[in-house]
C-alpha cells in the first residue's frame, strides 16, 4: 500500500528520469572512451599517408576477378583493382571481434553493390592477418563472405598497411605516382553500416553521381 502511495508522487517520476539520464550517460561514456583509445579515423588534414602498392595472389574464381577488374594474372598489384576507392578489412578467422563484425561487413558490401552510384566506385577486399588459405576459406564459408578475401600468412600486407589490431578498416585511393593515398584508418568494428559508408564517401571525396 505504501508503494502505491510513492508511485503517486511526481517526485518519484522525476527521480526515475534522473536515474535513467544518468545511466544513459554512463552507457555512452565507455563507448566513447573505447573509440578514443583507438587510432584516429583520419590522418591529419595536411599529412596524407602514402601506402605503396602491394602484391596479391589472383583468386581463381572468374566472378572475383571480374569484381576486382583484373585479368587472370597470378600476381596483381593492389593499385590495379578497378575502383576509385578500395576498402580493406584486415581480419583474422581467429578474432572474435571479426567474427561478430562479419555480418555487418557483408551488409556494407551489399549496400554498395545495390547502390548504382557507388557500385563501380567502391570495392571491398579482406586481408587475413597471419591466416592460411584454409583458414580464410573456413571464414568465407562460415559467414558467406561475398567479397574477395586474401590470406596474409607472413603479415607482409599487414606490415605495409601498418595495421596492428583486428578488425581494422583501411580506405585507399590511387594517387598520381601509382601509390595509394590512405583516407581512412578505422580500428575496430563500425557501429552502423550506413554511417560508416557515408564516412567512406565523404572522407574519400567520392562523387555520388552515376557514371
Amino acid at each position: 500500500m505504501k508503494l502505491t502511495k510513492i508511485y503517486k508522487e511526481w517526485n518519484f517520476f522525476l527521480m526515475l528520469l534522473v536515474c535513467l539520464l544518468f545511466l544513459f550517460g554512463c552507457f555512452l561514456l565507455p563507448v566513447r572512451q573505447a573509440s578514443a583509445s583507438s587510432l584516429p579515423d583520419l590522418p591529419a588534414s595536411n599529412t596524407t599517408v602514402t601506402i605503396p602498392a602491394f602484391e596479391l595472389a589472383a583468386p581463381p574464381e572468374e566472378k572475383t576477378l571480374q569484381y576486382l577488374g583484373i585479368s587472370g594474372k597470378e600476381i596483381f598489384k593492389s593499385t590495379q583493382i578497378k575502383t576509385e576507392v578500395l576498402i580493406i578489412e584486415v581480419f583474422s578467422m581467429y578474432c572474435p571481434h571479426c567474427q561478430r563484425e562479419a555480418p555487418s561487413v557483408n551488409e556494407l558490401y551489399n549496400e554498395i553493390e545495390t547502390d548504382s552510384a557507388l557500385r563501380d566506385k567502391i570495392k571491398i577486399i579482406g586481408i587475413a592477418a597471419g591466416n592460411s588459405s584454409y583458414e580464410v576459406d573456413v571464414f568465407r564459408k562460415k559467414y558467406e563472405i561475398p567479397f574477395p578475401l586474401f590470406p596474409d600468412k607472413s603479415f607482409a600486407v599487414i606490415k605495409t598497411l601498418a595495421v596492428t589490431e583486428t578488425p581494422t578498416f583501411v580506405g585507399l585511393k590511387v594517387n598520381e605516382n601509382g601509390d595509394h593515398d590512405q583516407f581512412l584508418f578505422h580500428v575496430g568494428g563500425f557501429e552502423k553500416v550506413g554511417k560508416f559508408l557515408e564516412k567512406v564517401v565523404t572522407s574519400s571525396n567520392l562523387k555520388r553521381e552515376r557514371q
Partner: peptide
C-alpha cells in the same frame, strides 16, 4: 537499460 549496459559494454574493446 541496466541489462543493456552490462551486455553491450562487455562486448566492446574491454
Amino acid at each position: 537499460v541496466i541489462l543493456s549496459i552490462t551486455t553491450c559494454y562487455a562486448q566492446s574493446a574491454i
